[in-house]
């Protein structure tokens, strides 16, 4: 076999071999985790620091502006932010840009409140603490004290209570969501008279303290599309609402101009951004361990390395085989 034939065969290798290699490097690191150390960037640290500076008197919006397609990238960052907010007792309004995003919102909340997982939070439904609300106990510390005094105790894996209407509200999806953002700059309750469970927002303590987006301290949009831009156009530019992005890796490059112009306080880009947030939470004692995003970084390391090796091999074969002098190449199967 001549040298040209060898390089030619290499360039025209059946692509199923490449698919197999990618499959192997995607699975093996899950079976043999390495847990390589990860440094954090200012883009993610600024979001972490912002939420860490907030408390029960503040409120944030967590927007599930993604569909299941980008679940692997957007969900870990949504979960991390939700956990951090719950840890700091910051009330969280959760919304969705699309009907599928509504399902992701529910799925994310169920993951954080899954009582079988260590480090979970235990939710208390709105109706379950009605008597305390009627008795005027709505401040968080007083509510937890009264709730536990009545014999309620945290399950084994749980690290804290979260009261619906006090610590979180699942607002969900509404059509034409960019107009909903615009409307919420005047009144959240006008757009969402009820939450996803049919509870009236007007009676919720967290809404009474934060009636519109003007009284909200941060909106985080976890997006798998340009939906995140609506928060800048209608939230940031109209009323100066602080915004942070959690976007997929391929989208992340698009939004660096908005960080430099201070239109967003920071962004989590892809799985790496989510993993950095998990590392910050673990380092600062917000969570005992890192989660799915950090585990996934081993896979991403292996896959990136393989792709770089393939690019190098492809170029070596291309030049060594003298194909750069030819115009036509077979495209391979």
């Amino acid at each position: 076999m001549s040298a040209v034939n060898f390089w030619g065969k290499m360039l025209n290798v059946d692509r199923r071999w490449i698919f197999l290699l990618i499959g192997v490097v995607s699975i093996v690191p899950f079976l043999i985790p390495v847990g390589m150390p990860l440094t954090t960037t200012t883009e993610v640290e600024s979001i972490y620091d912002c939420i860490d500076s907030l408390g029960p008197e503040n409120a944030i919006f967590l927007a599930f502006d993604f569909d299941p397609g980008t679940d692997a990238e957007n969900m870990p960052m949504s979960v991390a932010v939700m956990r951090h907010a719950f840890f700091r007792h910051v009330p969280v309004f959760m919304t969705a840009y699309t009907p599928l995003g509504n399902g992701m919102m529910m799925s994310g909340f169920e993951y954080v409140t899954n009582q079988e997982l260590p480090g979970c939070y235990t939710p208390v439904d709105y109706a379950d603490w009605a008597t305390y609300r009627d008795a005027g106990i709505v401040d968080r510390d007083g509510l937890v004290a009264a709730w536990e005094a009545d014999g309620h105790s945290l399950p084994e894996n749980s690290v804290g209570w979260v009261f619906e209407g006090r610590d979180y509200a699942l607002l969900g999806y509404l059509p034409l969501f960019h107009l909903v953002i615009l409307g919420m700059t005047s009144s959240i309750e006008a757009q969402y008279p009820e939450d996803s469970h049919g509870n009236p927002l007007v009676e919720m303590p967290m809404l009474r303290e934060h009636k519109s987006l003007r009284e909200v301290d941060l909106a985080l949009t976890m997006a798998g599309s340009s939906a995140c831009m609506s928060w800048i156009i209608y939230g940031r530019e109209k009323i100066g609402l602080p915004i942070a992005f959690g976007v997929t890796a391929v989208m992340a490059t698009d939004y660096f101009p908005f960080i430099q112009s201070h239109q967003i306080i920071g962004q989590m880009g892809g799985l790496r951004g989510a993993a950095e947030y998990e590392v910050l939470m673990e380092r600062n004692g917000v969570s005992a361990t890192t989660d799915k995003a950090f585990t996934g970084m081993d896979v991403q390391s292996a896959a990136h390395l393989l792709i770089i090796l393939l690019i190098i091999m492809g170029n070596v074969a291309y030049f060594a085989g003298g194909f750069h002098k030819q115009h036509l190449m077979k495209s391979g199967r």
């Binding site: 360039l11 692509r15 490449i18 698919f19 290699l21 990618i22 499959g23 995607s26 569909d67 299941p68 397609g69 980008t70 679940d71 692997a72 599928l100 896959a303 393989l306 792709i307 393939l310 690019i311 091999m313 492809g314 170029n315 291309y318 750069h324 495209s331 391979g332």
Partner: peptide, 21 residues
Amino acid sequence: QSTMFSLLAFYIASAAFRAFR
């Protein structure tokens, strides 16, 4: 939907090998 999106990794790897010169 997750499967559809994850297929990208396979096609990107193949395309990078063949086209990134």
